[in-house]
Structure formats: structure tokens, C-alpha cells
């Protein structure tokens, strides 16, 4: 069980991936709190699961599809109605930093 070995760098990396800005204090705090959460969750690893297939879907269904037929879309006005900013009938978003 390695989850309790969560490091400060791990948390900083995850925060970066999740685009969450954490201060140094918050990072320190999260290392401890996330470590406890992971340890708690890790108890499920003690369950006897040798004969149990992993389950990603609770319903025993496969091949649920729809025919390739066009259905009405939202109007552009409706689609954009929840956007904090819009311009030229497009969603306006902050520039993407340091990536191209």
C-alpha cells in the first residue's frame, strides 16, 4: 500500500492538472488530508475480490445505440445563454497560458 506515501509534489502536480491554484499552506494541509482520505479508501483493498470481475457499469447492458438521425440542436442563442462571455456567436474564454 503506497497511497499513504502521497508527497507534496504529488499534490502540487494533481492541483496543476486540475487547474486548482493552491498556496503553500494549502498544499501542506492537502498532503495530510488527502493522505488520510486515500488511506481510508484503501481499506477496500482488503476486500476478498479474487473471484470478482472489476465492475465499471452497474447495469448488465451492452450496445445501447441510437440510429444516425439528426435531431434538433439548440439555437446558438440558447447554447450561448449560459456563457459568461461571448463574442461573434462564440464562447469567449481566457487565453490559454503557456501552451500552443
Amino acid at each position: 500500500m503506497r497511497m499513504s506515501e502521497l508527497t507534496r509534489a504529488d499534490v502540487a502536480h494533481l492541483a496543476g492538472l486540475a487547474r486548482i491554484e493552491l498556496s503553500d499552506d494549502e498544499l501542506d494541509k492537502m498532503v495530510g488530508e488527502l493522505g488520510i482520505i486515500l488511506e481510508s479508501v484503501a481499506t477496500v483493498q482488503n476486500a476478498p475480490i479474487d473471484d470478482v470481475a472489476p465492475m465499471s457499469h452497474p447495469m448488465p447492458l451492452v450496445n445501447v445505440t441510437r440510429p444516425d438521425e439528426v435531431r434538433p440542436s439548440l439555437s446558438p442563442e440558447a447554447a450561448l445563454s449560459g456563457a459568461p462571455e461571448q463574442d461573434q456567436q462564440r464562447f469567449s474564454v481566457p487565453r490559454i497560458l503557456d501552451e500552443d
Binding site: D87, Q88, V93
Partner: peptide, 12 residues
């Protein structure tokens, strides 16, 4: 291009 852009407009 992205460099120098102030914001981006997205069409989905």
C-alpha cells in the same frame, strides 16, 4: 496563434 492572444473564441 495562441501566443500573444488575449482570449479565445470557441465554436463547438
Amino acid at each position: 496563434r495562441i501566443h500573444g492572444a488575449t482570449h479565445s473564441l470557441v465554436d463547438y
